[in-house]
Simulated scan of single mutants.
Amino acid sequence: TGANGCDVVPFGTEAGLFQSIGMDVVVCGPGSIAQAHKPDEYISLDQLDQCLTMLKRLCSRLSLPRP
């Protein structure tokens, strides 16, 4: 995406470990961060469906032969 920003968030991820060994990292997932990682968090079925669609498209894209 070209977005290489740094921010503080109320959760953890292993992305920094992968970046520290030179890997490009994207952190993504279903739902809204405004609803996540707090009491009564939830993900709607529509948000899960959108995530599955994105992951299937990503898999298809990554499976294409490179030119």
Rank of each mutant, 00 (worst) to 15 (best):
residue 25 V to I: 12
residue 19 Q to C: 13
residue 52 L to Q: 10
residue 53 T to D: 07
residue 17 L to K: 09
residue 34 A to C: 08
residue 5 G to C: 10
residue 7 D to T: 07
residue 3 A to G: 00
residue 47 Q to K: 15
residue 19 Q to F: 06
residue 9 V to C: 03
residue 26 V to L: 14
residue 37 H to G: 04
residue 3 A to E: 05
residue 7 D to I: 03
residue 56 K to H: 12
residue 31 G to V: 04
residue 4 N to K: 09
residue 24 D to N: 04
residue 2 G to D: 09
residue 30 P to Q: 15
residue 33 I to N: 09
residue 63 S to P: 01
residue 7 D to C: 06
residue 58 L to R: 09
residue 60 S to T: 14
residue 21 I to V: 15
residue 26 V to W: 12
residue 61 R to K: 11
residue 64 L to V: 04
residue 63 S to Y: 05
residue 3 A to N: 03
residue 15 A to W: 05
residue 15 A to D: 11
residue 9 V to E: 04
residue 6 C to G: 11
residue 18 F to N: 13
residue 52 L to D: 02
residue 65 P to L: 08
residue 22 G to Q: 12
residue 17 L to G: 10
residue 54 M to S: 14
residue 59 C to F: 15
residue 43 I to K: 15
residue 25 V to E: 07
residue 37 H to T: 03
residue 39 P to V: 09
residue 2 G to L: 07
residue 40 D to H: 13
residue 42 Y to R: 06
residue 45 L to T: 11
residue 55 L to G: 01
residue 53 T to H: 12
residue 41 E to V: 04
residue 9 V to M: 14
residue 29 G to R: 00
residue 26 V to Y: 06
residue 18 F to Q: 08
residue 64 L to S: 01
residue 6 C to E: 14
residue 58 L to E: 00
residue 37 H to I: 01
residue 1 T to S: 12
residue 32 S to H: 10
residue 46 D to S: 12
residue 22 G to P: 09
residue 36 A to E: 01
residue 57 R to L: 08
residue 65 P to S: 10
residue 49 D to P: 03
residue 29 G to A: 01
residue 40 D to N: 15
residue 14 E to M: 02
residue 14 E to C: 04
residue 36 A to Y: 07
residue 39 P to L: 10
residue 67 P to G: 09
residue 47 Q to L: 05
residue 36 A to S: 15
residue 30 P to R: 15
residue 37 H to W: 02
residue 46 D to C: 03
residue 11 F to A: 08
residue 55 L to R: 06
residue 39 P to F: 04
residue 2 G to W: 00
residue 43 I to P: 00
residue 48 L to E: 01
residue 44 S to M: 08
residue 32 S to N: 13
residue 16 G to W: 05
residue 17 L to P: 00
residue 25 V to Q: 06
residue 27 V to C: 10
residue 49 D to L: 14
residue 39 P to D: 12
residue 16 G to K: 09
residue 11 F to P: 01
residue 6 C to Q: 11
residue 25 V to W: 14
residue 3 A to Y: 07
residue 7 D to S: 08
residue 57 R to W: 02
residue 50 Q to T: 12
residue 57 R to N: 14
residue 66 R to T: 06
residue 41 E to G: 03
residue 54 M to Q: 15
residue 10 P to N: 03
residue 50 Q to K: 15
residue 8 V to R: 05
residue 21 I to S: 02
residue 48 L to Q: 04
residue 45 L to V: 14
residue 45 L to Q: 13
residue 4 N to H: 10
residue 49 D to E: 11
residue 33 I to T: 11
residue 11 F to I: 05
residue 45 L to C: 08
residue 6 C to W: 13
residue 30 P to L: 13
residue 48 L to N: 01
residue 15 A to S: 13
residue 25 V to G: 06
residue 64 L to I: 00
